[in-house]
Design a protein around this nucleic acid. Structure first.
Lengths: 140, 140
DNA sequence: GTGCAAGCTCAAGCCGACTTGAACGCAAGT
DNA sequence: ACTTGCGTTCAAGTCGGCTTGAGCTTGCAC
């Protein structure tokens, strides 16, 4: 019954909505390995499929780079900064949530107040636009 | 007094936290033009600076591609789908907000429940991971 | 008038995340 | 025996968004 769960690359790819080439690429980058190779061909166990799903999930919308995912998946044994990476990510995601919500409201505003004009040249923008700026310019 | 508001490229770049090369690139892609050229050199009015700020704001976090921003900035006169582009973006941003919030909670969970183990191999994941999958696999 | 920093243009390079193409391997069906 | 159809490797290409480098021009200070 255990062997029935093991799947070839295209099956996994189709299940996850990935291309086989992407899976091979993840392997090349050290993120995942097939459970087994038969005559050179890759076979994946449910465990690896889950791992691929995690990779895909974390990587969606560019939330984490493959390298960061690799670090996190390697776990505490391999990476000193494991928890730190995740904490940083959480902070970054919170920031990102605020930014995106702001951008969305901003677009809603454009839609409701500027139906007959290009969206630039409106004073309503100023505040939001340049608030963001001040935040960004603290660093450089 | 109006002329006092007009600024050369590096001043604008510094103000916005951009590189001059990025501003030239935006111009090449048709997103912005200097108000004036003196002996070939670019000078920007507050209007253009605002436009650059908009570009930067919308482009942050890959929320919109430069091409989409160009379309939206071109306005109703130039683009039939102006409002549609923005509506699509709003929808996409809402979706993105949900995804990112989910990912953040997910990471929080990893942090609190897996301090001593690699984050894969945990059943808590399954639901969220494969829910997302089902959504993604409706299309292909 | 001589330097030299800053600007300009144009082409090429870079990064991440893949995809694509060429050339080949292996196993099953007819 | 041979074709079909995935599979494999490795190198090179693609895309977006810039950056960098070469080679030339300008503006300003001394």
């Amino acid at each position: 019954m255990a062997d029935a769960d093991i799947q070839p690359i295209h099956t996994v790819a189709r299940l996850l909505g990935l291309r086989a080439s992407a899976i091979r690429y993840y392997e090349e980058r050290g993120l995942v390995e097939p459970a087994l190779r038969l005559a050179g061909r890759r076979w994946y166990s449910p465990e690896q499929v889950r791992r691929l799903a995690i990779i895909q999930y974390w990587q969606a919308y560019g939330l984490m780079s493959l390298e960061e995912i690799a670090d996190v998946l390697a776990g505490p044994k391999a990476t000193r900064g494991w928890a730190e990476i995740i904490e940083q990510r959480i902070t970054a995601l919170d920031e990102q949530l605020r930014e995106i919500a702001g951008a969305r409201d901003h677009l809603r505003h454009v839609l409701s107040h500027h139906e007959n004009s290009a969206p630039d040249g409106c004073e309503h923008y100023e505040a939001r636009l340049f608030n963001g700026l001040q935040a960004r310019n603290r660093t450089p």
